[in-house]
Amino acid sequence: MNEPNWKPLEKVLPLDQCADWMWMYARTDGDRVIQHYKHRDTRGYLYLDQDGQAWTFDVATRGCYSSFVCDIDHEHTDDTHTARRISLAEAIEQAGL
């Protein structure tokens, strides 16, 4: 999984446009492997699974997160990233294109 996988990107973009993207890494989300690609110019990310489905990641903060209202000595952030399906058009827009 640490090897670049260009197949999802090649499924959704013309080959000549794939050269504008860098493969960053892959992340497993359940039974999906989501590839993370970064655009060379905009520095925006495109997240695609093995089928070419686009994804975005929402940060969900839960629990105690503010040291201003909590005086207990512990970590005050508990962020997780939740994958959510989006359209390819929305993903391209989020990547700054």
Rank of each mutant, 00 (worst) to 15 (best):
K11G: 06
H74I: 12
Y37C: 08
D29N: 11
A60T: 06
A26D: 05
Y25R: 15
Y45K: 08
I72K: 12
D78K: 03
V59S: 04
F57I: 09
P4V: 00
R84K: 12
L97R: 06
D71I: 08
D73G: 02
E3R: 11
V33L: 08
R84H: 03
R62T: 15
L46R: 05
P8D: 00
T77G: 11
K38A: 11
Q35S: 09
D71K: 11
G96V: 02
E93I: 00
K38R: 14
N5K: 09
E10G: 12
D51S: 14
Y47D: 10
H36R: 03
R43F: 00
Q53W: 13
R27N: 04
D58F: 10
S87I: 10
T77Q: 15
L15D: 14
G52Q: 09
N5T: 02
D78F: 07
H74Q: 10
E75Y: 06
I72Y: 11
P8S: 05
D29Y: 14
H74T: 15
S87G: 15
T77I: 14
H74C: 13
L88H: 01
H76V: 08
D29A: 09
T77S: 15
K11P: 07
T61Y: 10
Y47H: 14
D79R: 06
G96F: 01
A83W: 01
P4W: 02
T61G: 10
A83F: 02
V12Q: 14
S87T: 15
H36V: 02
A83R: 04
T77W: 12
K38C: 12
F68E: 14
P14D: 09
E10I: 01
D20V: 01
A26W: 00
H36I: 01
L9W: 00
I72F: 08
D58L: 13
D71L: 13
G52P: 13
L46H: 05
K7R: 07
H39P: 06
L88K: 01
E93Q: 07
E3Q: 12
K7H: 04
D79F: 07
L48W: 02
C18L: 00
D73E: 09
N5I: 02
Y45C: 07
C70N: 10
